[in-house]
């Protein structure tokens, strides 16, 4: 469902993403792993059509990110890093705005809200303004926003960053429950998360793909914990 071909993007002299290619199928949860500044966020922003790649392209659900960016965004659920939102809005009016943009109206809107609000457990803060929310609730509102149109493809940039252990567990459960019939990309640098949710993992560093494998195979190949695998790969292969 996602097919990335030679995606490349640089900011001035810094090459953030250096020609990455991969495919993700339905039912897969791909963990995008890498040290800080590896190019995970840039890659995801390009897939969500927020940034334009310098070269290369990608298709999501058959739509090209360069030719049909609006169509791509329509089929995509995207949670950005730090889950940006309009701080002065209440959670309810914020979700209404997203429904407006995504053309979810009338009965469908009620159904979508009834599904997504309990799913992301934001009932208790539904009438609160977003600026008063804790980081965890903000993240959940971001998730609700990304899931409201029940997208086939989900791109989540560090969905559990800054959450407490309970919240982390909930978000992982949520991802697992959706894994079967969606195509999900999760970026993270928390390795236990990869083991908990991902069926496949790509390790990138300095914009290049170093490893494309499954967490299980990696552990078997290197015969150590994922932590050590990660260190070995990102430290030795880059140098």
């Amino acid at each position: 469902m996602i097919s990335v071909k030679e995606l490349r993007r640089s900011f001035g002299p810094i090459v953030a993403v250096d020609g990455i290619s991969f495919d993700v199928e339905k039912g897969q949860v791909l963990g995008l792993l890498g040290p800080n500044g590896a190019g995970k966020t840039t890659a995801m922003r390009m897939l969500a059509c927020f940034l334009k790649p310098d070269s290369g392209t990608a298709t999501i659900c058959g739509q090209d990110i360069l030719k049909n960016p609006v169509e791509v965004r329509r089929t995509l659920g995207y949670l950005a890093e730090n889950s940006p939102a309009y701080n002065e809005m209440t959670v309810g009016s914020f979700l209404d705005f997203v429904c407006d943009v995504r053309q979810i109206k009338g009965g469908d809107r009620k159904k979508a809200l009834d599904r997504v609000v309990p799913m992301c457990s934001v009932e208790s803060v539904y009438h609160q303004t977003i600026e008063t929310l804790s980081k965890g609730y903000r993240r959940r509102v971001g998730l609700a926003q990304a899931l409201i149109h029940d997208p086939d493809v989900l791109i989540l940039d560090e969905p559990t960053d800054g959450l407490d252990p309970n919240q982390k567990h909930e978000v992982r459960e949520l991802i697992n429950s959706m894994a079967k019939d969606k195509c999900i990309i999760v970026s993270t640098h928390i390795l236990e998360e990869v083991e908990a949710v991902c069926s496949r993992t790509i390790i990138i560093s300095r914009g290049r793909i170093l490893v494309d494998s499954t967490p299980k195979e990696l552990k078997e190949e290197y015969k150590c914990s994922l932590d050590e695998v990660f260190r070995k790969i990102t430290k030795t292969k880059v140098a």
Partner: peptide, 14 residues
């Protein structure tokens, strides 16, 4: 500044 622009332009809006 707030970063909500990333939200806005990852929704289907030109």
């Amino acid at each position: 500044r707030v970063g909500s622009i990333e939200l806005l332009f990852t929704l289907p809006i030109t």
